[in-house]
Design a protein around this nucleic acid. Structure first.
Lengths: 341, 341
DNA sequence: CGTTTTTCCGTAAACGTTTACGACAACACA
DNA sequence: TGTGTTGTCGTAAACGTTTACGGAAAAACG
């Protein structure tokens, strides 16, 4: 069934060394012999066995994508990741690299799974998602000297690895800008309570913009909640209760925004009429919600492709003539103005 | 850095054969030696190199999931697949199997990518999604004798492989039932135009239920469109235009439903008021749309786990004491009644 | 023609495992 | 004591590649 390089060699009456060299485009093989080898390979339907290759070369030609569902995130997961994954795997495929997807149990750190991938050398590098502010996965990989890149920034590990993130500061900043320009002064911010770094980045931008506009930051207008619909539902009333009610809310997560809007509805407060709502990361849900939610949208598929490139550029085996480069990029979001603000 | 079985052997002054047997729980090794080996393995932080293992055993311990985006399906992909993938990979992980995700270019058949996986033996089996009515991927895998399972049914390949599908016939049937019970007699059906099998299955159920209720099937009430929002938007007016307007529409896809509702809105027809709308496969979008769309919902995460089990049961290396079994299952959907019908 | 260079190819080792086989010692049994 | 059995381990081959090395023939050069 599966023909090996030995079959080819026997069939052609030459040595396996020559066959291998011919197939790999080595210079020291006669043009005619190469031709014969290639023909025979087609004829015998030969493809190199990846396990043999991996063993000899010490490289598996596959990249692991570590996706960690947030706690409570069950039914439909993050729509966020499919387009990112699409881009990532598309670019990797161009380099003949495979993509392994490793998920953790929802809400559980995935150190074990990560260790397994690294120690059994199932992948040549990993891509981390759901980056935490302090991320022990990053510490582990740095210490182990295992190549990786992250989607999202982290305080861990220094500048030793490529990372690509969305510009949450700027999004927070621009959201405030937009709201202030529309006359709002009391602007609430709702973000996830976990150690997810983007919650901090968002808040930085939010604070900075308020300060620029001479608006005092009111801690009563900032709330943290579980990063899902229930969390948004639960925590939103807290910023509403305050005597001097906000006229606008910025949600740092789409699911939380949906839950928040539900809570608002129950309080008789209509987004887009009685209160302005902006969501920092757009998903299709924002578009179809009623009222359609104004949101900041990232370019996920291009980001996936880009992070693949950045990761490869950091790997000696794939680095171009300029040598290994550690790149860090922060990408802007695009404001999609809809009906909620 | 990476310690091999040789390092262990040298460290303990025993042969690599014994080390391997000890680690693999073979019977013919002294209890005390095994203890020493296990300790040394922990001490030297040893994990078996997967490439070496794969090469020797002729098995990679990884399963490929072939996900093929539909043409035109770009920004957010199918929210459908994340929970399925979660379940699939969770169960596979229990068997220490990895999940490789292979996507095709949107709208392009992925034969090439599939051949590559099979011929270079990068995976031990594959799981096919987006099953076509006649699917050349299935033909290829059957002919090649490569193990696989499918999410979705197909006419290709006979009953030689495990498959798990949603009961689209019954969903179509029940949707009609429900609408008839509410007084509707003119019920339109909109489905994808591609060769996707579920479009046919749905229509079977739809026709069967109409017949049971003594309602003649009106071809003017059935339309095929591109399986995305634009397709639904484009094709929905066709069934509306007919002189004797339908009072209800069943959409066989969530994206098409959203596009269809947009078209209806532009014609001044309000779902839930002027026309009843039911969607066959629920996604979060249906829930947040306004009006919230009544829809049939599958249990995707359990289905993912189940298909993993079914695939493994069909593999000699994993089959239990009953031996290899080829299972085919069709799972019911749950009706989520909302506001659109 | 002799020497050097180039071209091309075969040999064999190596990557890290698993496992069939046989060896040896200890033990049991008659 | 001789024979068979059992327990434990070492040896070596094998999986399918790639590649360092060396050698033979051909070509180039003086």
């Amino acid at each position: 069934m599966a023909s090996s390089i030995h079959d080819l060699a026997r069939h052609l009456n030459i040595s396996i060394g020559t066959v291998s060299r011919a197939l790999n485009g080595r210079a020291d093989v006669n043009a005619e012999t190469r031709q014969r080898v290639l023909e025979a390979a087609r004829e015998l339907n030969y493809s190199p066995n990846q396990s043999g290759r991996s063993l000899r070369q010490g490289a598996t030609r596959s990249i692991a994508f570590m996706l960690q569902p947030h706690p409570g995130d069950q039914q439909y997961g993050e729509p966020f990741f499919i387009p990112f994954l699409t881009g990532l795997q598309a670019r990797l495929a161009e380099y003949d690299l495979d993509l392994m997807v490793v998920m953790g149990e929802p809400g559980q750190y995935q150190q074990e799974r990560l260790r397994r991938v690294v120690e059994t050398r199932r992948a040549d590098a990993v891509v981390l998602a759901n980056t935490r502010r302090e991320d022990d996965r990053i510490d582990y990989l740095s210490k182990a000297g295992f190549p990786f890149a992250t989607l999202g920034r982290s305080l861990s590990g220094g500048d030793t690895y490529p990372s690509l993130d969305i510009d949450f500061e700027r999004a927070g900043d621009e959201a405030v800008d937009r709201l202030v320009a529309r006359g709002h002064r009391r602007i609430a911010a709702i973000r996830p309570s976990l150690d997810l770094n983007f919650g901090y980045l968002f808040l930085d931008g939010y604070r900075k913009a308020l300060k620029r506009h001479g608006i005092k930051v009111d801690p009563g207008l900032i709330a943290d909640g579980f990063i899902n619909e229930a969390g948004g539902y639960q925590v939103t009333p807290r910023v509403i209760i305050s005597k001097d009610r906000p006229t606008a809310i910025i949600f740092n997560n789409d699911a939380m925004a949906l839950g928040g809007c539900k809570a608002l509805a129950e309080m008789g407060i209509r987004p887009g009429h009685d209160i302005a709502v902006i969501v920092i990361v757009d998903t299709p849900l924002c578009r179809y919600f009623s009222p359609a939610l104004t949101a900041f949208r990232p370019s996920l598929e291009p980001m996936g492709r880009r992070l693949a490139e950045m990761l490869l550029a950091s790997l000696p085996a794939f680095a171009g003539p300029e040598g290994v480069r550690i790149m860090r990029e922060v990408w802007p979001l695009e404001l999609i103005a809809r009906d909620s603000d």
